[in-house]
Design a protein around this nucleic acid. Structure first.
Lengths: 232, 232
DNA sequence: CAAATAGTGTCTGTAAGACATTATTTG
DNA sequence: CAAATAATGTCTTACAGACACTATTTG
């Protein structure tokens, strides 16, 4: 009887094949805000709703390759500065048509590296939406996914040097600090911030300065390492 | 032409359906070591190799439900004390037969909560293997997965109160400390450890003592909260 | 010279880590 | 009383956070 039960399970297993999709959350900082790229759906379900760009995984393509392809299709950028797997969402009814198991990735990229954003074939438009002030009409469970990504990003910002993936090659310390203030959504003391950056040896000076307005010019810096480091 | 390219993609998407599996890493502490439950494969590929228990996701079943089902089938335990999604492995050729996208979960459970371990239908035996000294003959990419899980566990142990999921209801502070020493694989100063636990208010005294050997009896404690807390 | 941001140092409180002795039990 | 583990406090050092003024540029 035990054995019969097992045979039945094997049979069930062989027939249930959910679709596997990859959704790519693409974040950047523009106009003093954290933005996430969303597309407006052209077709039901959730026609006219905003969605995270995504698509099905192709044969012979790894999950990460699918995420990179999605990124390139939407933004034109060759690669993100940072890309990591976020979480896999697989509730049976998250897509009303059929079962879709969706592996979410999140990508970070400096605004300057992005060309004109392009809507994919199943979307009427693509737009940078404020990631901390999301539109109400989000498709599927995408509001949940974006909020989860934001938490992950906030965590990484505090405990790693991931900010390198949102800044230009050369930047001022004020710009660096601004990334933290925007994403963590709180003011940071300038002296304490600089003290910390200094101690961690995260940046090295370029020897150059830039004039950003009617005030004293700022020194510019580069990251000492553009790879993920766990701090402390 | 852009449009034709898109149509071709849609067609390709509709035919590629990888299998979706869930692998569940079940950890416990026995005999002063961190153990992970592995099963010996009965069938090719990797016949006779050790593997993480897993199986295909069923229709109408969430990924987490599949992980819980696997846990119960293997250990007889009704539920883990802690369960979280680890990572999704989806390289095209990780299974030589066909493409399998595998969502890995990791579970923690006190040894006392586990009955006799049971091999599933596709395995000849199940065993608790030392998680830090893995067998050489591991199937698929399972060595990589276990190492990844161990890193995650070490991280969580340092930055959360997750140890509650490996200890009995009542425990001594030495037993508590031992969990850290085993998993982090280093000695910890007893006074500093207790000072930290005290400050975090992680435990409350039961008022009882237990005699664990030919020496002074130890006071026992319970966790103040048996839910995941991010510390600091 | 007004406005705006760049750049800089000290003090205080808290947490982490190093370190040794006494207490209690059993055989 | 020997052996084994339980229980406990102090000192030093490092990091976090609060806090204010001077420097440099442009219009």
């Amino acid at each position: 009887m035990e054995h019969q039960e097992q045979k039945k399970i094997s049979y069930m297993e062989s027939i249930h094949r959910p679709s596997v999709a990859v959704d790519t959350l693409i974040f950047t900082i523009v106009e003093n805000a954290l933005k996430v790229l969303l597309v407006k759906r052209l077709l039901p379900p959730f026609e006219g709703f905003w969605a995270i760009p995504g698509g099905f995984v192709r044969e012979g393509e790894s999950l990460e390759q699918a995420a990179k392809r999605e990124l390139k299709e939407e933004t034109g950028a060759e690669a993100a500065e940072y890309l990591e797997q976020l979480y896999t969402f697989g509730e049976p009814n998250r897509d009303p048509r059929e079962r879709v198991v969706s592996v979410a990735y999140f990508a970070l990229i400096p605004a300057s590296r992005i060309g004109t954003i392009v809507a994919s074939s199943d979307a009427t438009e693509a737009a940078w939406c404020d990631a901390q002030e999301l539109p109400q009409d989000l498709a599927f469970d995408h509001a949940k996914i974006i909020k989860y990504a934001l938490l992950r990003l906030q965590w990484k910002l505090e405990y790693t040097n991931i900010a390198y993936s949102l800044l230009e090659e050369e930047f001022t310390l004020s710009e660096f600090q601004k990334v933290y203030e925007i994403i963590l959504n709180r003011r940071i003391d300038k002296r304490n911030f600089r003290k910390k950056i200094e101690k961690l040896s995260l940046v090295k000076p370029t020897g150059k300065t830039v004039v950003r307005g009617v005030h004293r010019p700022a020194k510019t810096y580069r990251f000492a390492k553009k790879e993920l480091l766990l701090l402390k």
